[in-house]
Nucleic acid binder design. Sequence first.
DNA 1: CGGCATCCATTTTGATACTG
DNA 2: CAGTATCAAAATGGATGCCG
Lengths: 227, 227
Amino acid sequence: MDQRSYNQFCATARTLDLVGERWTLLLIRELLTGPKRFGELQNCLRGLGTGLLAARLKHLEREGLIERGTLPPPARTPAYALTAAGRDLEPAILALARWGMTWAMGQPRDDESFEPGWVMLGLKACFDPRAAQRLHAVYEFRIDDDAFYVRIDAGAIEVVHGPAQHPDAVITTTEELFREIAAGRATLGEAFTDGTASATGKPETIRRLAGLFRVPPARARTAAPTP
Amino acid sequence: MDQRSYNQFCATARTLDLVGERWTLLLIRELLTGPKRFGELQNCLRGLGTGLLAARLKHLEREGLIERGTLPPPARTPAYALTAAGRDLEPAILALARWGMTWAMGQPRDDESFEPGWVMLGLKACFDPRAAQRLHAVYEFRIDDDAFYVRIDAGAIEVVHGPAQHPDAVITTTEELFREIAAGRATLGEAFTDGTASATGKPETIRRLAGLFRVPPARARTAAPTP
DNA sequence: CGGCATCCATTTTGATACTG
DNA sequence: CAGTATCAAAATGGATGCCG
């Protein structure tokens, strides 16, 4: 599982030697929004068996991409978190996500699973720092029984799985809307208008939210003439 | 080979469904610097058998990421080129490369193969558009028997495998130097000084070259405290 | 629940031989 | 060369069962 290397002295190949195996990048994707426990990971990653999950976690820990630790004091249960090296994979994963938004999303198939966190990460991938100049705000998203918070700080964005401490605005909506957003059939702005999402908090903070993200238009993957 | 899907309605997962299999991203990496033939691909990708290469090419063609065509008129031999969708994977591949430069390069192992093109792509990944303001120039790199050209156009960079038509400057050097650059033990600037690389052409164009790239410093992948 | 071990059916892969 | 055919060796997935 890690003795199979491409044997190329190339930055891309070396990276794929470490994280190119099946499930690995998706596992890291899950940890991008905060530490998760074994069972949580298994829930998000249907089809990944316990054995393979344990092997992948061990491999990533040995390679210094994740750390096994325990959640904040009250809960003494083990959890996995990204190290600095692991966190630094975020730009690559968001780049893959942007590609997927453009070229591969279309309609959900009915055998596909879905997590609101994937859309939260998608929003992050579409975040436009220039649209967030001078904005400092914490948003809390409540999607059915899931919660995320988004902290915007002068062109930087942070997305974390879990409720916020002192949100400036709270957005309440459904997983169904998030599915529609992922399919490109809805936007946050429209959702506020047609009532599929509601918000409480500082009006100005709410007003700026929808403009922070530039969703790339979907395109079809048909052979294109070389320019 | 394509019936194995993650079955997630997620942009990242959908992308990996298409290009996440072994060898696929490296294959696309090879095509980022221009069309290549079956045999050329096989040469760069030691360990990838002909059967699997053929299968991958067929899959990528069917999915609209590459096109099978023939090289420019004189040679009537088949070659594979990226479509617009395939080319659009470049940001993701360069992001993976940047990660590898930072966290995974170190020294070459002696069982690793090496291609100068991988370093050319590494340079592209380190290109700093702001350092190239107002610069319009075509550089030709001659690395032993390989050639690449690099066109800089006001903050944009293009890297193509093959000789240039009318280069403003020609850089001549060895594969050995490129290996050292990949290992972070040499830079273009030093190479001009110590004579391991030589350049002919417009002095001002040559002078600006080394400053166009910001190579990220290498870091060790040891468990880091979460900030 | 967290996590590892084991067994087994199915895929993927790697390596090589072979054909136009 | 470009690509198919073939076969052995891994990797995967699913279903357990076990132990703290």
